[in-house]
Simulated assay, not measured.
Amino acid sequence: MSLTSHLQELKKKHDSLSDAVEKAQRSPGSDDLEVSRLKKEKLHLKEEINRLTPA
């Protein structure tokens, strides 16, 4: 897998997690631990994207 396609996949996952976090936060019975887990995963992906993106 090329670096470009890997970055695209990471960005897709990041966007998907963004949507999931927003949806969970709007849900009245949302689980705070699940929201926190999603946010941590999203942050990890963002850090990985930044690390792999050429300067």
Rank of each mutant, 00 (worst) to 15 (best):
29 G>S: 12
46 K>H: 11
46 K>Y: 04
22 E>R: 14
11 K>Y: 09
25 Q>I: 05
35 V>Y: 01
50 N>M: 15
32 D>A: 15
13 K>Q: 12
55 A>L: 12
33 L>M: 14
49 I>G: 01
16 S>R: 13
23 K>G: 04
40 K>D: 06
19 D>G: 10
53 T>P: 00
3 L>C: 04
39 K>G: 02
48 E>A: 12
38 L>D: 00
37 R>H: 07
16 S>L: 10
22 E>N: 10
9 E>I: 14
12 K>W: 05
21 V>R: 09
53 T>G: 04
55 A>M: 10
36 S>D: 11
8 Q>N: 13
40 K>Q: 09
11 K>P: 04
18 S>Y: 05
38 L>W: 01
9 E>K: 14
49 I>R: 02
30 S>H: 05
1 M>A: 12
51 R>Y: 05
28 P>M: 06
6 H>P: 04
11 K>F: 12
9 E>H: 09
47 E>P: 04
20 A>I: 08
3 L>I: 06
5 S>G: 05
24 A>I: 06
51 R>Q: 07
35 V>L: 00
30 S>P: 01
43 L>Y: 03
13 K>Y: 07
52 L>I: 10
35 V>D: 00
1 M>V: 11
51 R>N: 05
41 E>W: 01
1 M>D: 08
25 Q>L: 07
14 H>R: 15
29 G>Y: 07
9 E>P: 01
3 L>R: 02
33 L>G: 12
34 E>K: 10
49 I>F: 03
35 V>E: 00
3 L>N: 01
12 K>I: 06
40 K>R: 14
